[in-house]
Design a protein around this nucleic acid. Structure first.
Lengths: 219, 219
DNA sequence: CTGAATATTATGTCTAGACATAATCCAGAG
DNA sequence: CTCTGGATTATGTCTAGACATAATATTCAG
């Protein structure tokens, strides 16, 4: 364990245990230098990282303080569906329903299947200005999500999550009763402010369970 | 702009623009030292931060490489409901329905209202072993979520998000028709491996829209 | 007393170098 | 040929110190 790690984990432990409470001042850098017998650069690196993780707040001249509890936020994992289903040991397959070009947009519709049952209805728009190569792809065996993952780096994404009721057409494609509750995930992706893709994924409520795990100060 | 920031943003720009593709080697540290005319510590700090953000991968002896596109993941903001509703300019109010102690667990049920309409049905368990002070709170004017935010630091949380249909009782409390689609968020929170609270929040599907924004390499 | 100039102090950024560590390459032994 | 042990090399961590910057505390003029 490096000196920097030791400093960090000592401070984390004191904050998490409640020994140092939000607003408390933690030792000055020069005090930590003295007690750990290391150089200031090492202490500073440890504090910088804790500050970036949101555990402490540093103020010039005043010192460093335990930060107020952070806003709730969590890291939401939205893995590649194919990989996710494979990880559960179920057979995965993608069935293309429709593919057409409308001006500079490529519209793809299809269903992801897990263990032989429909699992997710996907409606996707791909903006050809950002991804011209997509025009060459048929997407009849590979889902656009998997293809895009490997071909286009994105710099920003925005997710919306809602609960909706399946209409008759959607219900038929997902082999479920109309009016049943579904999780609707809408994701827009950009690459340097140029839209890359917009996707709506509709999951039967009882067949999908999104999970988000979070560890604050996950240094 | 500091030298470190300049190095970082130059590399980010080259990766995001596609000039350097996943797998490409980026210049060695000593080359960056030469081209920026700075010390190795500065270059190393920049690369360390890019590596932590997942943009590059560093390998001893081999150099640093542009990382493969990351798994989709997003930062999910789960703000305090009271603060969130207030931010939308709507009146917020919490109505306690039930509060009782069952052994070492405090069970609280209530409804969050926005603009006079029920907005979220909350069923919460608070583990008194981790939060003994909660036993003194009536929770008749302040929601347990807001109270806990200010009183208990937590170190880990796990969210589950599902779509469900409201049963008759839930529907009545939320002033909606039974069987309608709802978003169910379940959150468990721990503090140093001791459970703090478990909450289920049920939102009418058409009145809530969870949003997650993500910028990879958000250095 | 009030307000402005000055001194102090802790953090922010950086340098030039040291040694450690791990991965790779290459030469020589078998 | 293969395998092993060193030499090489890039990153990983650290030191001791420098100067910059921003916020506070203090002093002094009015």
């Amino acid at each position: 364990m490096t000196v920097e790690e030791r400093i960090r984990s000592d401070i984390e432990a004191r904050v998490h245990s409640g020994e140092w409470r939000p607003g408390d001042r933690i030792p000055f850098e020069h005090e930590l230098v003295a007690s750990y017998g290391c150089s200031r650069a090492t202490v500073s690196k440890a504090l910088t990282r804790l500050a970036r993780a949101g555990l402490i707040e540093r103020r010039r001249k005043a010192g460093s303080f335990v930060a107020d509890p952070q806003v709730h936020s969590a890291v939401l994992e939205v893995p590649d569906l194919a990989a996710m289903i494979a990880a559960r040991g179920e057979a995965y397959c993608w069935k293309l329903l429709d593919r057409r070009v409308d001006g500079a947009e490529l519209l793809v519709t299809g269903v992801h299947h897990a263990a032989g049952r429909p699992f997710c209805l996907e409606t996707r728009t791909i903006f050809l200005a950002a991804v011209p190569e997509a025009g060459e792809e048929s997407f009849d065996t590979v889902s656009p999500g998997s293809w895009l993952l490997g071909h286009v780096p994105w710099t920003r994404a925005r997710h919306g999550i809602r609960a909706v009721e399946a209409d008759a057409g959607q219900a038929a494609l997902l082999e479920m009763a109309a009016g049943k509750a579904c999780l609707l995930i809408e994701r827009r992706t950009w690459r340097m402010d140029a839209p890359v893709t917009l996707v709506e994924q509709l999951f039967p409520g009882d067949r999908y369970d999104l999970v988000a795990e979070f560890r604050p100060g996950a240094s």
